[in-house]
Structures are given as structure tokens and as C-alpha cells.
Amino acid sequence: MDDVGARPVPAAFDDWVAARGSALLRLAYVLTGNAADAEDVVQDALSRALPRWDQISRLDDPDAYVRRMVVNAHTSWWRKFRRRESPAADVRTDEVVTGPGEGLHSDERRRLWAACQALPADQRTAVVLRYYEQLEYDEIAALTGVREGTVRSRVSRGIAVLRQEMGERDE
């Protein structure tokens, strides 16, 4: 998990991007599901932040502001070019799983990731922000511009679909 909000804020745009860029790419990657779209989304957000960097860098939480720009860029990208089906993660059966989730069987990990990628975009965004960024429902609501109840519904439905995909019963 990347804690993009815990470090001091460098004033210079390049310094800030060097420190936070990877975290933004990781967020964009789990939102979009592929590297090219993740880079596209982050570059788009950063290119829009650049001309206003003086103002953004003085905010209490510039990380959150840019993170919101990334989510918005993803949403905009999705709305503009949404496809009938979500692109799938590039996964292989011989994939070696390391780091977080290493206790999971690779097949289960692959299936769960694929199922997550197959969620409708709004559900996937809510699920990622909840279980990757570890945001509270009201924070997700503020970030995505929808009501908290809507966020709860999206997360709940997303989880229900994932459980079903994984052949698990609701707890």
C-alpha cells in the first residue's frame, strides 16, 4: 500500500513527482488494469496539475488533490472510451506471486484480480479506493463526487460479485 499522504511536500513539481509518481502510477494501474492506460491517466493528471502547481503545492494535502485528479482522469477516460468489456490483467499461470498476498494460491490470486478487473468501472473504482487506498466511505464519496450511500452500494455490489466469482458465500 502506498501512503502518498505521509511525507513532507517538496515545493518543486519535479521533486514532488519523483517522490509520488510511482504511488500515483500504482493507483492508476489498479484502477485501469494496464500499464499504458495507467501512464496515460497519470500523465494527464500531472499535465493539468503542472500549470497550477504553485497553488496546489500550498494546499494542506496536495497528495490528496493530485490523487483525486488521477481518479477523475481515470473516470473521464473510462467514460469517454469505455468498452463493453474491461481489459484483463496480463496474467499467466506460471506467474510467481510475491509480496502481499503471498499466502494466496496463485490461481486464486489470478482469478480474484481478473474478477476485480471485470467489475463495472464505478464498482471497481470504489473497490480499489476502499481496499487498496484504504479510504473510508465518506472519503471515497468526496473523491468520486457521489453520495456516500452510492459508494457503499458500489462497494457492496462489487464485493458480492467478487465473492460469487470466487464461489464464496456472503459472510
Binding site: D2, V30, E39, L50, D90, G99, P100, R109, Y131, Y132
Partner: peptide, 26 residues
């Protein structure tokens, strides 16, 4: 289940592209 999901997403994030050149590209 939610903890496993969280771990899987975090693990997949490791496959994200590196951040080199982002500022220049932006």
C-alpha cells in the same frame, strides 16, 4: 475475503510501470 482482496490488489500494484520521466512527460 476483504483482506485477501486487499492483498491481491496491492500485490498487482507491483506490476505498475515505473515512474521515471513522468514530470517530463507531463
Amino acid at each position: 475475503f476483504e483482506e485477501r482482496l486487499s492483498a491481491v490488489i496491492a500485490g498487482q500494484a507491483d506490476d505498475a510501470p515505473q515512474g521515471g520521466g513522468l514530470a517530463e512527460a507531463a
